[in-house]
Design a protein around this nucleic acid. Structure first.
Length: 153
DNA sequence: GCCAACGTTGGC
DNA sequence: GCCAACGTTGGC
């Protein structure tokens, strides 16, 4: 089982939106970055755990945990003319973008902020620290345990 | 296949 | 809203 971090803008879709969604489940739509897509398509598996991270908002950081309930398949929004995520270069024969399905698991007891993560010298591997803008990133078991533990302090 | 121009992300 | 960092595009 692998660990991941998914970014979302809470004004658009928050951890609470996930908790309140039908079956507490959503398709992780609209990822339009190849590196992030490749992780979803090739490596994200059913049963993997996902940190939900709120970006571009007042309190930036990790807010909760979800679990992957379906592996990658075609992102329907790439074919939807009315969607912001429509991609004219994607065809059903040659789709570009994928979704995975995630299901709400829990809120962290408290938000673990980006500032705290950056300030913790024990957290070594996470791409967040490198100022990357990757929206789907792997998390090592060590970093996962440290971050979830920080939420309990 | 290089690289300049442009667009987007995302913290602050 | 600013702007740095990064990704993508397209001319050559």
């Amino acid at each position: 089982m692998a660990y991941w971090l998914f970014k979302t803008e809470p004004d658009a879709f928050s951890i609470d939106d996930l908790k309140n969604a039908q079956n507490q489940t959503t398709l992780w739509e609209g990822v339009r970055n190849y590196q992030a897509r490749n992780f979803m398509r090739d490596e994200v598996k059913v049963g993997d755990l996902v940190m939900i991270y709120h970006s571009s908002c007042k309190l930036v950081g990790v807010v909760g945990i979800a679990v992957v309930t379906k592996a990658a398949y075609q992102d329907p929004t790439q074919f939807d003319l009315s969607s912001d995520y429509y991609d004219a270069k994607a065809t059903s024969d040659n789709p570009r973008w994928v979704v995975v399905e995630v299901t709400y698991q829990s809120h962290l007891d408290s938000l673990v902020s980006l500032k705290e993560i950056k300030a913790n010298p024990r957290i070594t591997d996470i791409a967040l620290k490198k100022g990357g803008r990757l929206s789907i990133m792997p998390v090592t078991k060590s970093d996962w345990q440290i971050i979830t533990h920080m939420a309990e302090e």
